[in-house]
Write a protein that binds this DNA or RNA. Structure first.
Length: 923
RNA sequence: GGGCGAAUAGCUCAGUUGGUUAGAGCGCCUGCCUUACACGCAGGAUGCCGGGGGUUCGAGUCCCUCUUCGCCCACCA
């Protein structure tokens, strides 16, 4: 190894992410760079636009997985971008107490001790859970630091904190005061394992292969007749109170009003007519079980039917209210699936079982434990959603709110337009206790209160609080307002930072969380909580399966950080993050999955090592002080390319906020193309800065032949590398910060993290400029070298015959071309007679590589003839198009003009090629 | 059952309102340890843009249809 272990600037020859990243992160923290200052917000008289993101709060007991890695990388990118752009950037971190999820975890812990939560009791269980959260919770927030998340940790929130709990109570009470919270008695989704009710969203459909059982019920007053019902759930039949047919169904019209005998339970139930029945499905007769099916419940209400309960909370057979005598003794206490088997066998024995068909249907499952949900009749608290949905819909239509990708807007609208009331009570112990108290003494109306109630206001007697807790999402939907200080009306953060800006999330919680936040924002504060919803894709494995713990196909982001660094992780996921497109990673090959990011980080490091090492520590001259004439063609080119890169990155990231407060049609779906941003920045750094500018500047920086020119090269090099680091910083914060701080002229305590986002020096004119000519000649020579297998070390003679007006450029850059292409370049007036390889460039320059003994004239002619034939074909098509009157008349003038110009160029090139072929190869 | 989306190089995906010879990363092939980088450099190959039909001067892009896949929603037991 000839390279010294370290350069004078102390840049190791291999970037050590593991050693660098924690140090840098600590520097940012120590400097307080992530802390937002409310008073700087323009909304309260400051001079900065606020830019706020609230993190989708992970479950407090969660550990970081790749989904977070993606989600939080995107958020950090946006926050860092805006921070650099001069906004007062606030990223609010925090966690969610996650009612069912956390309770389940602690219950599993108790189970290892052979106990249930009922053994320890409510108070002790809650204490135990609090301890568990205190000990193990919040790990994920520490892990976020490892990936560089620039959250304002002083504002870390927790849905079950006293502050946020106060917001939850306030919200409940206000909704109640507005008549939007009510107690409802109806069939809801019940998880017999979690022992709680669930909202519609929490009871997820899953296609399941079931069976459709046909059961015949004898008609009571006609022993010769039976009616056959079809059901997927025979175990519920003991709760039947009727069978229903469609009012217009001729087959059963005469039976309506008569009775049938319910097998096994042996009770008489009526045949009723109800339009709910679909005559085309099954037999056209449906059994009605109001206590165990939401639809049947509605039918039961319409017909004033009894609602016998035959399953208990745990999903075991029981005789509840109005069901006494219906369930045979052997069945009592039997689990529902076993009961199904038992009943089917019994029906078969009694000759009541008809055909049993395989039946594919959607069955609801608990979203936390995947247990089949049991519809259950019970009393729950509900939120009337329709009034809340209206402004949320209007906000989207008005452009106060946009959702990217666009297609999700339709999903959002459809859900809100068909919104159903929200069951917010959970029969859990972990969560916000519902702020309702009952007085058993006087039995008056329930007391809904912001503060704890200790005695009945009417009779002074004892009161008891509602046993239930609120749905976890009832605290989550307040997140953008509660974390900023609501319900304090004059909370400084609320005034300075609300509404927030972008909400970043996967599409899976659009209904659970995002749409509800919008509703809460409008209802409680009167404004949408953010103007942009950015929905990214899901992380999947190579078989396109969602990464999950149970499948064991997950990737631990911390493994990736340890192996390749946070920057590599971030770059990889962001470069792969098309708008709304899933990101595919291979959990079995981290090397391959993250090579993109790791390779790019290494490249960047090496550019830095070279440039910083050769530029030295002396401050460079400001670009503005360098006369234009002192800039080389390469200098001008790379400065232009930087401007192009800045323009492309700005365009890809898009408008930070709607210019006029509302999204206009023109800008509504623009921006947040994170992968485009990544690609533009990468292309500039790698394919332009490293491949061309650094290569072409080596001699100027190292040679020292011309001290004045070296200063120019130093200044331009530092300027463009600085620009590159700024462009990359939101995506790769650590390595860019490490390099940036070593740029010459940096004072101690300066941070890229808060340096200004780059701005273009000028509009970049169209056309490649003179340096493009240099690049084309170099590429042509390299191609010839490769075609003829010339050893890289061998310097060859090359002649170039310039196009009209290009002589100065080529003569001026002959030395540079010679270095880049390893050749002795002479500018000639004609190609010369001997055997040589010829490349005719698009700009009209001709590169001639005489290679005595190597060049095969036949081959050269073949190549040139092929090229000529191809060009003639294309030119023919172009000429035909231009000769087409319809085209000329109907195509936009600019298009026609462009085609004309192209035709002129092609014709010139054709002539040149033709001449070359004639001269070289004869007719 | 309803709605939405996707189908482009071996793989993952770009391709903006129709307008040059359809691009990138990874992979692959050839040659190189050229004193920043082999996690690299230089060069290269690979596409009936899912099938069919239509609109248009012009279609990967718009319309219809078929096929395949995916997602969301849904009270047919």
């Amino acid at each position: 190894m000839t390279t010294p272990a370290t350069t004078p600037l102390d840049l190791p020859d291999r970037y050590d992410a593991a050693a660098t990243e924690p140090t840098i992160y600590q520097q940012w923290l120590d400097a307080g760079l992530f802390s937002a200052h409310a008073e700087r917000s323009r909304r309260v008289g400051g001079d900065r636009d606020p830019f706020t993101i609230v993190i989708p709060p992970p479950n407090v007991t969660a550990v970081l997985h790749m989904g977070h890695g993606l989600d939080d990388s995107a958020q950090d990118l946006l926050i860092r971008w805006r921070r650099m752009a001069g906004d007062e950037a606030l990223w609010v971190p925090g966690t969610d107490h996650a009612g069912i999820a956390t309770q389940n975890v602690v219950e599993r812990l108790l189970a290892t001790e052979g106990k249930t939560r009922f053994d320890v009791g409510r108070a002790a269980f809650v204490t135990r859970t609090e301890e568990f959260v205190r000990e193990t919770g919040g790990v994920i927030l520490e892990q976020l630091k490892a990936i560089g998340a620039s959250c304002d940790w002083d504002r870390t929130a927790y849905t079950l904190s006293p502050e946020l709990s106060r917001a939850v109570r306030e919200a409940f009470v206000r909704l109640h005061e507005a008549g939007l919270v009510y107690r409802g008695h109806r069939v809801i989704h019940w998880c017999p394992r979690c022992l709680t009710s669930l909202s519609d969203e929490e009871a997820e459909f899953e296609d399941t292969a079931g069976r459709l059982y046909h059961i015949s019920y004898p008609v009571a007053d006609d022993p010769t007749r039976t009616v056959t019902v079809a059901t997927t759930r025979p175990e519920t039949m003991l709760g039947d109170v009727a069978v229903a047919v469609h009012p217009d169904d001729e087959r059963y019209r005469d039976l309506v009003g008569r009775q049938v005998r319910l097998p096994i339970a042996d009770v008489l139930i009526p045949v009723i007519a109800d339009a709910y029945t679909d005559p085309a499905f099954g037999t056209g007769v449906v059994k009605i079980t109001p206590a165990h099916d939401a639809n049947d419940f509605e039918v039961g209400k319409r017909h004033g039917l009894a609602m016998p309960v035959i399953l208990d909370a745990t999903g075991h057979m029981a005789e509840g209210a109005e069901a006494v005598g219906r369930v045979p003794a052997e069945l009592l206490g039997m689990e529902r699936m076993a009961a199904r088997e038992w009943i089917v066998r019994r029906l078969e024995a009694e000759g009541r079982l008809g055909k049993v068909e395989p039946h594919q249907h959607a069955v609801r499952h608990c979203y936390r434990c995947a247990t089949v949900v049991e519809p259950r009749l019970s009393d729950q608290w509900f939120v009337r959603m329709e009034p809340l949905a209206r402004p949320a819909l209007q906000g989207l239509r008005d452009g106060a709110l946009r959702i990217l990708p666009e297609r999700h807007e339709a999903v959002y609208v459809h859900w809100l337009e068909n919104i159903r009331d929200w069951n917010i009570s959970r029969q859990l112990w972990w969560g916000h206790r519902i702020p309702v108290w009952y007085c058993d003494g006087c039995g008056g109306t329930p007391i809904v209160s912001r503060t704890d109630v200790t005695a009945c206001p009417d009779c002074q007697g004892p009161v008891r609080q509602d046993e239930d807790v609120l749905d976890t999402w009832f605290s989550s939907w307040l997140w953008p307002i509660s974390t900023l200080g609501w319900p304090d009306k004059d909370a400084p953060d609320l005034e300075a930072f609300y509404p927030t800006d972008v909400l970043v999330s996967g599409p899976d919680i659009l209904f659970f969380w995002i749409a509800r936040m919008v509703m809460a924002g409008y209802f409680f504060v009167g404004e949408a909580p953010f103007h942009t919803v950015y929905l990214h894709g899901i992380v999947r494995d190579t078989q396109h399966r969602k990464m999950s713990k149970s499948l064991g196909n997950g990737i631990d982001p911390l493994d990736v950080v340890r192996l390749y660094g946070a920057d590599a992780l971030r770059y990889t996921v962001i470069a792969g993050m098309g708008l709304g497109v899933d990101v595919m990673l291979d959990p079995d090959d981290l090397e391959k999955s993250f090579a993109t990011g790791r390779n790019f980080a290494t490249k960047l490091w090496n550019i830095g090592r070279f440039l910083l090492g050769n530029v030295g520590a002396e401050p460079v001259r400001p670009l503005a002080e360098i006369p234009a004439a002192a800039l080389t063609r390469a200098d001008r080119w790379i400065l232009d390319r930087l401007d192009v890169a800045i323009a492309e990155c700005d365009a890809a990231l898009g408008p930070a906020r709607p210019a006029g407060g509302r999204w206009t049609e023109a800008e509504r779906y623009v921006g947040l193309r994170l992968n485009d941003y990544a690609e533009s920045a990468r292309r500039f750094v790698w394919n332009e800065l490293a491949d061309w500018y650094v290569e072409s500047t080596k001699a100027r920086l190292q040679g020292g032949a011309d001290a004045e020119d070296r200063e120019v090269a130093r200044a331009v090099s530092v300027h463009v590398f600085d620009g590159a680091l700024r462009l990359l910083h939101p995506m790769m914060p650590f390595i860019t910060e490490a390099l940036w701080q070593k740029l010459p002229g940096r004072a101690a305590g300066e941070f890229l993290c808060v340096a200004r986002w780059p701005e273009r020096r000028r509009e970049v004119p169209a056309g490649g400029g003179e340096f493009e000519r240099v690049r084309a000649v170099v590429s042509a020579v390299r191609q010839v070298r490769s075609d003829y297998n010339l050893a890289p070390g061998r310097t060859i003679d090359v002649r170039v015959v310039p196009a009209a007006g290009a002589r100065d450029v080529l003569e001026g850059e002959a030395a540079l071309i010679g270095r880049l292409a390893r050749c002795e370049l002479t500018v000639a007036s004609d190609a010369g007679p001997e055997a040589a390889a010829h490349v005719l460039l698009a700009g009209g320059d001709e590169v001639v590589v005489p290679l005595a003994g190597l060049v095969d004239l036949e081959k050269e002619c073949q190549r040139l003839r092929t090229e000529l034939a191809q060009l003639e074909k294309q030119l023919g098509a172009l000429t035909a198009r231009l000769g087409n009157e319809s085209f000329v008349a109907r195509a936009p003038a600019a298009v026609v003009e462009a085609e004309r110009q192209k035709a002129v160029e092609w014709e010139a090139r054709r002539a040149q090629l033709h001449e070359k072929v004639t001269a070289l190869c004869g007719a």
